[in-house]
Design a protein around this nucleic acid. Structure first.
Ligand code: MN
Ligand code: MN
Ligand code: MN
Ligand code: MN
Lengths: 216, 216
DNA sequence: TCAAATTTTTAGACAAGCCTAAAAAATAAT
DNA sequence: ATTATTTTTTAGGCTTGTCTAAAAATTTGA
């Protein structure tokens, strides 16, 4: 249906749209996709031609309904494959993203349906990210992060914002994973850093990290 | 490492080499890959440049050790994925080839190792084709076909030569699958067609079909 | 407000992988 | 031994997706 490159652009635009609300800029896409702005302009014109995005020169793009659906289907595949890799093949959560980046482009409706069934229709991937259903609806989306907590508050880790291998490994090293209970022992209001307790151990966490841990 | 297209050419050359023994011709590759001879010449030059094939103008190609290894690794991945699709996702044997054609290009040593373990290190794919090990060695290869049998002989189906969807569906419709017992009731020596008995039912089979069923 | 800095687009080029049409080599037929 | 046919290669072109360098538009800010 759509090329690997087109799918990757749509996915990037979807994620950028989630973060910013208003039109996505050429430079933002270029940075996210690790490519040049001129390449983005070219592709965005093609996507616009195919009615997958609305593009106004010098004003950025946003997805059409069709474009959003394509993006969400790719995200659904990515996250289902990540569940497969962790639950069935025993990969750790920091090893699956790059493989899923490849698997997300396999074209077969039936394959995804059957994979979904095989995995027990999971609602979240190994990083706590919600898996949209076939129609493209997300059950719910995380909003509270660790840095929102105040001293003495307790939170349960339900997801992570970033999926960089190094970040996930850092978390694993300190026994932080989906389901971990985190207690705020102390908080430095000046820079937002905090001292927390996880699995009986104390850990000092910077605000950059606390911003990337979703909690309930 | 190597592009999707390169991998497909190497795989095609490997299969043609198996059939013919001597150098593989440009036209043979073109026909198998459903492309033009001029495209094959282009690619074959590239593969030769990369020491994956030995190419002499007007005299065809054959794989180098490295080229063979790349081809066999792709075949290993193809067949392991087919086992996954049939054994784990409940696909029927006639539905898996096209999906495996995509999955065979996913790049990750670790993924294949873990998939192999997850599947219980199968030695044959759903069509009875042998799965090479990590080093590229095939356990054994089928040689006897149904058409070799004589009247009153009994054979067990251990594989099929073709994996076309229509052919596999024809076999399934007549209860022929891996493990089926086939008895030759009658054979027309003129055209090689035969009357056989499978699962208590009689069936008339042309020599083209009998040539594509491996038996032991 | 108008010049400077930044962002975005355009112009032109390139590699990969394919194509058609024509030329060259090899093979088959007379 | 030529001629005819088939196979293979070459030449040139096209599409996709990328790039660099330069031009144009927008935004910043003095
Ligand atoms: Mn991921
Ligand atoms: Mn994920
Ligand atoms: Mn197959
Ligand atoms: Mn097979």
């Amino acid at each position: 249906m759509y090329s690997l490159s087109e799918e990757n652009y749509l996915k990037a635009i979807f994620h950028l749209q989630e973060e910013s609300k208003d039109a996505v800029s050429t430079n933002a896409i270029a940075e996210r996709m690790d490519t040049k702005a001129s390449s983005v302009t070219d592709m965005v014109k093609k996507l616009s031609e195919k009615s997958l995005v609305v593009y106004i020169k010098y004003q950025g793009v946003h997805l059409t309904e069709e474009g959003r659906l394509v993006a969400v289907k790719v995200i659904r595949k990515h996250r289902l494959w990540e569940v497969f890799l962790v639950d069935k093949l025993n990969f750790s959560w920091d090893q699956v993203h790059d493989i899923a980046e490849q698997l997300e482009h396999i074209q077969s409706e039936k394959l995804i349906d059957k994979l979904d069934t095989f995995l027990g229709q999971p609602k979240f991937d190994p990083h706590g990210d919600p898996i949209p259903d076939k129609q493209g609806n997300f059950s719910q989306t995380h909003n509270k992060v660790l840095s929102d907590l105040r001293v003495t508050n307790i939170g349960i880790c339900v997801g992570v914002k970033e999926s960089e291998e190094e970040f996930l490994q850092y978390l694993s090293r300190h026994d932080i994973g989906i389901g971990s209970q985190i207690t705020v022992l102390n908080k430095e209001e000046y820079d937002g850093s905090m001292l927390v307790e996880i699995a009986g151990k104390e850990l000092f966490i910077s605000v950059e990290i606390a911003n990337n841990i979703y909690i309930n």
